[in-house]
């Protein structure tokens, strides 16, 4: 009976979705706002990647809010998973030795781990030139931390270091925003630094700097969240 209802609900949603897909006609031109972004981001901000330009400059305040959301998640997961010391001691006494990671994971991590960190740094630094950016690179770095935790369960992440890095990146992020308020048109305006040559690493004003800070902050926050789930 219950199964039939579930099937019915999913089927009806399926019909709605199928009709939506059937009636959708592919767009033939971009909207006026998108046209504005596509012309303003490369010409006035000097960033070849339009999406990063929108994320870091036009929606910079929103991006700051997203990082704040990640911070709150790290904090709330920490509160939820904080176990009492006596409970943890008892757990250590009663639980058997955890299973060791397999040979494949251990050896693979040794080879791949530096490459993943390098790739994360590359994605963060080249966010304004090619596909990528602070968020994406930060997630790549956090995935490397995940692999580290899987391959070496005994390794301890330095929470103090991570939280100091993360707070410092956040403070610098906001200060750059305030500098934009003083020296340029508004909060997080990237015109506080010279535009530079189009398509080179140090170009597009403050966008690479903001992107790097964002990457560091996101990477540190995601690593803290991953580490909280370990205990």
């Amino acid at each position: 009976m219950k199964r039939a209802f579930t099937l019915l609900a999913v089927l009806m949603f399926g019909i709605i979705f199928a009709r939506m897909v059937g009636d959708y006609s592919e767009r033939q031109s971009v909207s006026a706002l998108a046209e504005h972004y596509l012309s303003v981001v490369p010409q006035e901000l000097g960033a070849p990647n339009v999406v990063t330009g929108i994320l870091i400059t036009f929606r910079g305040f929103d991006t700051l809010g997203e990082v704040a959301v990640l911070f709150m998640v790290a904090a709330s997961v920490g509160i939820l998973l904080a176990s009492q010391p006596e409970a943890r001691q008892q757990k250590e006494l009663t639980e058997p030795e955890p299973r060791r990671p397999s040979e494949l994971v251990q050896n693979g991590a040794e080879v791949i781990l530096p490459l993943i960190f390098l790739f994360g740094a590359y994605v963060i630094m080249n966010g304004h030139l090619s596909a990528g950016g602070g968020f994406q690179g930060g997630a790549v770095v956090a995935s490397a931390v995940m692999l580290l935790v899987l391959a070496k369960p005994s390794s301890q992440l330095h929470h103090g270091f991570l939280s100091i890095t993360e707070s410092l990146a956040g403070v610098l992020y906001v200060s750059i925003g305030i500098l934009g308020l003083i020296f340029a048109a508004g909060f997080l305006d990237s015109h506080i630094l010279p535009k530079g040559d189009f398509g080179t690493l140090f170009s597009a004003g403050a966008i690479p700097l903001i992107s790097t800070l964002l990457g560091i902050k996101v990477g540190a926050e995601l690593s803290v969240i991953i580490d909280r789930f370990r205990n």
């Binding site: 971009v30 046209e35 596509l38 012309s39 339009v50 999406v51 929108i54």
Partner: peptide, 12 residues
């Protein structure tokens, strides 16, 4: 760019 690129707003 305006005549040959897709809409960047959904991606953002």
């Amino acid at each position: 760019a305006t005549s040959r690129a897709v809409d960047p707003i959904p991606a953002a």
